[in-house]
Design a protein around this nucleic acid. Structure first.
Lengths: 199, 199
DNA sequence: ATTATCTATAGATCTATAGATAATGC
DNA sequence: ATTATCTATAGATCTATAGATAATGC
């Protein structure tokens, strides 16, 4: 029944991967250790040789989820119009539907407020990465308050998706995403728009 | 042990009130019927004469929470500058800290995606009220896309608070709220600002 | 007679631990 | 000899139900 160290480490990583998806799907309180381990092809008994507690896994799975989300942003970012490309997939009905692989801030944001310092630290690190990336895409025009803009844009994107998932009406869901896309485009090019209106 | 119909109805309302606050504090899955009923001064056994299921209570408590939040918006809205007044209390560190009495979309938004149609219906109705109110405050200038603006503003406000609660760093929390306030002000007066830049 | 609430309990599930097992690593 | 995983279990908690109780409402 024992397994090599390498295999054991691989199992650990699998558990974290699986948890990062299942927590997003069911919430931190919505799934138990038994099902988390089963998702990785293991039994519950193996859990505490790999993790200190459920909260410990929550913190590591959160970190993994945010890293994965960051990777998707990087992959989607078209060099020509990176922000536009990210908006196109983030503020889409497809993203609204795929909770398990979608943005962890949307899927777990409300819950994180109730979680441990460690879980919040995972989210904080991931959120800072989002902001840095956004800042690189929009910041070059005016410099000074590009962080403020990045924060506002991220807020709008996260909020729109949360709201979009909180209502039954699909049309309303879609409108939230479209309205946010429009607003984010305007915010990101605010100084350009003002220059434009001076012509 | 029996109680008059009037008292029973009063108890029912108390349970809904208490649940609307305790769900916001602990999440739908984070608190059990025993503690919810204890909060209303009753025992668990009385629950199923008043509600069909925990989900039934969740839907009613959600409705109540959103009504209460709407009331706070109305109360805060200064006739001179209603949006400014609401922004001032909504995007504040005070609101960030008071999960139990704060906006239910922020406190439960991520969880709602996983809840029943009934819970979502409660949220949808409340969200529509928010939008209507915002539309009245900002819509008169350009009319046409005032709903889009309201949606973008609500998204930014909700997202900023979710993000603000998801990080440990208080300074970062505050910056999210401030950046959102700035952005919302600009969005709400977008046409005015463009006119201004033409002078 | 009806019924709102109580105590008690069923049956499931939760986190965490204990001890057995069988393969690894020295 | 060590240890990663397994089965089994402790003890708590969860939702929901059953039956008793005592006051209301007719």
């Amino acid at each position: 029944m024992r397994v090599s160290r390498i295999q054991a480490e691989e199992n650990r990583q699998t558990v974290i991967d699986v948890a990062s998806r299942l927590f997003r799907e069911h919430g931190f309180d919505g799934i138990g250790l038994k099902d988390l381990m089963k998702g990785a092809g293991l039994t519950q008994g193996a859990f505490y040789k790999q993790f200190q507690s459920k909260d410990d896994l929550a913190a590591q799975a959160s970190r993994r989820a945010l890293e994965s989300a960051f990777g998707r942003w990087s992959a989607a970012a078209d060099p020509q119009d990176p922000l536009g490309a990210v908006i196109a997939f983030y503020l889409s009905m497809g993203h609204r539907q795929e909770r398990m692989d979608g943005c962890p801030v949307v899927a777990l944001g409300s819950d994180v407020a109730r979680q441990s310092v460690d879980v919040k630290a995972s989210f904080e690190a991931g959120i800072k990465n989002y902001l840095e990336m956004l800042g690189r895409w929009i910041g070059e025009t005016d410099g000074e308050d590009s962080t403020d803009k990045s924060m506002a844009i991220l807020s709008t994107m996260v909020g729109a998706l949360v709201l979009s998932r909180a209502v039954n009406n699909k049309r309303l869901s879609k409108r939230f995403l479209q309205a946010a896309a429009k607003s984010v485009s305007m915010t990101s090019s605010a100084s350009v728009a003002q220059q434009g209106s001076l012509e």
